[in-house]
């Protein structure tokens, strides 16, 4: 698979994974009834990709506006998965992007990054692209 693109819905984020270029992007909102329905396909596509990506540079940009608690758990699982891939040789950089005045998202970024040992996790306070 070269690409995975899932458009955003009212309560789920846009997924834009360019596997060929090594640039992955997740953005928007996530508060679906069932977080596994949103994150299941993401994990399903990342797992085989990361297994074959040792030695490659991979950038993962995450720019969420809001997510509920079950999506927060799914994001934590995602970061643990990425950290395991980084431990086995994938050169992974995560950019956690948020609006400069958004304290909630900054704090989430800090919480998520705390136990991650192998990947680079950057907190990026930046003005969001115009919506």
């Amino acid at each position: 698979m070269d690409k995975l693109h899932i458009p955003a819905t009212e309560r789920s984020p846009e997924v834009d994974f360019d596997f060929a270029a090594g640039i992955l992007r997740l953005s928007g909102e996530s508060y679906p009834e069932d977080a596994s329905r949103v994150f299941g396909p993401i994990f399903g596509a990342l797992d085989p990709f990361l297994a074959g990506a040792a030695g490659r540079d991979i950038r993962f940009d995450i720019e969420m506006i809001y997510f509920n608690s079950s999506s927060a758990k799914a994001l934590m699982n995602l970061f643990q998965m990425l950290d395991r891939a980084a431990a086995s040789g994938v050169r992974l950089v995560v950019n956690w992007r948020f609006a400069p005045d958004d304290e909630t998202l900054r704090e989430f970024g800090e919480d998520f990054s705390e136990d991650l040992e192998h990947l680079a996790f950057n907190l990026v306070a930046a003005d969001a692209a115009a919506e």
């Binding site: 608690s69 079950s70 927060a72 758990k73 643990q80 919480d111 705390e114």
Partner: peptide
């Protein structure tokens, strides 16, 4: 407590209530 629950496997019975209430 929130950070701890974030890293826990989902509790089958609660279907995620714990982390929601902590939030």
């Amino acid at each position: 407590y929130y950070k701890e629950q974030l890293r826990e496997a989902p509790d089958e019975n609660s279907r995620g209530a714990t982390i929601g209430l902590i939030e």
